[in-house]
Amino acid sequence: MKTVLTIVLFIVAAPLAGGLMAGLDRKAGAWMQSRVGPPLLQPFYDVAKLFSKQNIAVHKSQKYYVLCFLVFVILSGALFVAGQDLLLVIFALTLADVFLILGAYSVRSPYSYVGAERELVQMMAYEPMVIITAIGMYMVTKSFSVADIAAFEQNLFVKLPGIFIGLLFVLTGKLRKSPFDLSMSHHAHQEIVGGVLTEFSGAELAMVKIAYWYQNVFLLGLVCLFFASAFWLGVGAVMLTFFLEVFIDNNSARLTWQFTLASSWIAAAVLGMGNLVVLIFI
């Protein structure tokens, strides 16, 4: 019963939190750029407006792919808060992303195509590090279950600092921040326009945005998991991570996909694998 309540709470509260985070992101970004910035609730206004727009689907199947994307993002988040297997959560999120990519491939638009290709590259870039995170957590807690990891009495960060930093590194791409906002950027000032999202409009685009809110909440939950033993420390870490990502976004230019792939793998190999090797020997 408690699990069901948690899941319901997640489904209701996560988009609110995610939307507020997006608003805060835009506000903080604006301040860093000496601008006034939009109101804090602007992302909600945007999504509400998108839902009111005329629905133009370039390809019929697009709708179902986007729906699947949203459902699987929610599912992965729900599995996470329900304390299920961490690997299952990670692969559910990957599957969700695959649906988004299929949605982008379902239309014949070169921008969408290139965006989808880059999204695949980005998946390749961050996936190793995310899996290493799960393995690292397993090696410390001897369990893949999120519930067990969260209940672990020690602070995971103490044993997994390399993995934590590596995760922050790939999170930049996952949160669509410079320098790794290749496939899609929030600002659309990109050579491939909106990247994967180029051909989505109206309600579909709104659904993608909501899915991103869920996903961001889940990703920051993953960050929180490192500090699960001390709740407030976890909240602090999440806030700091979030600020750091916005800060990095405003401090770097977008890099190429080759660089993203290479640097993410190097980060995974050095920070992630290094941390795992140390764990084996101590």
Partner: peptide
């Protein structure tokens, strides 16, 4: 960036 963060827009 940090200077701008704490100054008037």
């Amino acid at each position: 960036v940090l200077k701008s963060l704490f100054r008037k827009a």
